[in-house]
Nucleic acid binder design. Structure first.
Lengths: 203, 203
DNA sequence: TTTATTATTTGACCTAGGTCAAATGCCAAC
DNA sequence: GTTGGCATTTGACCTAGGTCAAATAATAAA
């Protein structure tokens, strides 16, 4: 397993880094009982490369903290897969609106490598929140993280061209990117496979 | 595989409306003391058309619940204003990462008409949350709302062309749109003024 | 090692939307 | 009503990135 500092250096945006810090600190400072409860409602699962952790049409009953490996979230539009997130270690995979509303969603979550994840069940977490108010604050911190994260993605779409977006993602995690098919990276960047290929040769 | 129209109806704003309802219901069902506290830390302010409720470089110390009128949030990139949100009545204007981290942000919030807003101060709200746990849940609901909202905006950018995005916004609030300069709508849609003008004549 | 399959590159062409500039429309202030 | 200042439209042209198709890598399977 990689060290915390190495992990943090991989997340390029310093703002997001601060958030992650804040959340980790918070979890580490939870009182004994709350921490135990959190432990109790979490379980570890392993998936093989290519496995689907979640399918479109299903309700997202849990979120998945990536312990080891890489995963992605995508949806299908006009027969094309659009990758919305690529998750590295310690990041949290979840189909947000499906999870929040507990209704069927449009997202797939797929293991891009063999992955080991911590699964936290929605219903159990909601129950636990009633007894352990600190968990509500934890939930809030995660939501703040997501909200800011998505807003930043939006700004990227508005202000950066394809080349800049690509440079940003390889800066974030150069060594991971090598294992991910270009098709997936292209769809994450919102460009075609061919355009991505051309960008790569030019740089 | 699912059809285009079915997909589009999925990401239309009905989900968001439901969510707003949920939040308002929650507020209405708060216990007496909590409701009073919330009342106590809120104040009403009025702004004239063109006034700035928030400037880039400032810390976003409060969020603004629009009671009456229209406002927008924008930032400046390469000397161009990019409108990120247009707020109608009952919506909440806030520069999210500036608000959450209480650090200077890049956003402006501007009154597009005369507006009346309920201002909730960050520091006071944080204090109140310590004493009234229901307010943490309220905060969480707002964050969930933002997160899902931004994710939906992202999907719009990925799956809809300029014309579809324009149709969506006039469908949402046809009568309001008439008062808003095309420049602003265009920058909200992520297209140029000229393109928007051409889209409008074609429809 | 050969074959089958999938991933990536390259080329030729196309399109949505951008940019720049000029023309018109729309008010508000004189 | 005129005049100035925006807001919007229209035209001519440009560019980033898309699409389709074919050519090469790379891999995995036999």
């Amino acid at each position: 397993m990689r060290g915390q500092s190495e992990f943090l250096s991989d997340i390029c945006s310093c703002t997001m880094l601060l958030y992650i810090h804040k959340i980790f600190d918070f979890v580490n400072q939870l009182d004994e009982v709350t921490a135990t409860e959190l432990q109790k409602i979490s379980l570890v699962k392993n998936y093989k490369k290519g496995d689907l952790l979640l399918r479109a049409g299903e309700v997202c009953h849990s979120n998945f903290v990536i312990e080891k490996g890489i995963a992605r979230k995508y949806y299908v539009h006009n027969d094309k897969e659009i990758t919305t997130e690529i998750y590295f270690e310690k990041e949290v995979a979840v189909s947000l609106d499906s999870y929040i509303m507990q209704k069927p969603g449009k997202d797939y979550v797929e293991a891009l490598t063999d992955v080991s994840v911590i699964v936290v069940n929605y219903a159990k977490f909601q129950e636990a929140k009633k007894k352990f108010p600190e968990l509500v604050s934890l939930d809030l911190m995660f939501m703040e993280y997501y909200a800011v994260w998505f807003e930043k993605r939006l700004v990227e779409y508005q202000t950066m061209d394809a080349t800049q977006r690509y440079l940003k993602i390889i800066e974030k995690s150069p060594h991971y990117i090598q294992n991910i098919p270009l098709t997936i990276i292209a769809s994450y960047l919102g460009i075609s496979l061919e355009t991505l290929s051309r960008i790569r040769t030019k740089i």
